[in-house]
Design a protein around this nucleic acid. Structure first.
Length: 101
DNA sequence: CGGTTGACCAAGT
DNA sequence: GACTTGGCCAACC
């Protein structure tokens, strides 16, 4: 039985490059409402390069937090082609991915 | 095992 | 538009 955290990572790995998802989407995909627990899993994320934690944002398209600082999060997103402005994802709805299997 | 904390969310002020 | 409040639930001490 995988822990709650590991299931978050598995879902996150399904998010294609250039797209983003939300803490809520992940929690709901796991059948729970522990939005904050999802963020906690990312914060303690032991799979730093493997799991694309930077592709997870708030439900309104704002960046949310990041263990290495928001600036780093923006840089990584931009490196994947995701444009960010004023702490929010541009064309958020178009880049949003929540079709988890 | 109880209380605190948190990379959240929604609604109210 | 910014700030406060209440609620949710897993991890941590």
């Amino acid at each position: 039985m995988e822990s709650f955290d590991e299931r978050c990572y598995e879902l996150l790995k399904q998010v294609p490059k250039g797209k983003v998802t939300t803490y809520k989407a992940i929690a709901e995909a796991l059948g729970t409402k522990a939005y904050r627990a999802v963020g906690g899993a990312m914060n303690r994320n032991p799979y730093a390069p493997k799991v694309p934690c930077h592709r997870v944002v708030n439900v309104d398209g704002s960046l949310g937090g990041f263990a290495f600082g928001q600036a780093e999060k923006v840089a990584r997103l931009k490196a994947e082609g995701v444009e960010v402005e004023q702490g929010k994802i541009k064309a958020f709805k178009e880049r949003l991915y929540d079709a988890f299997q």
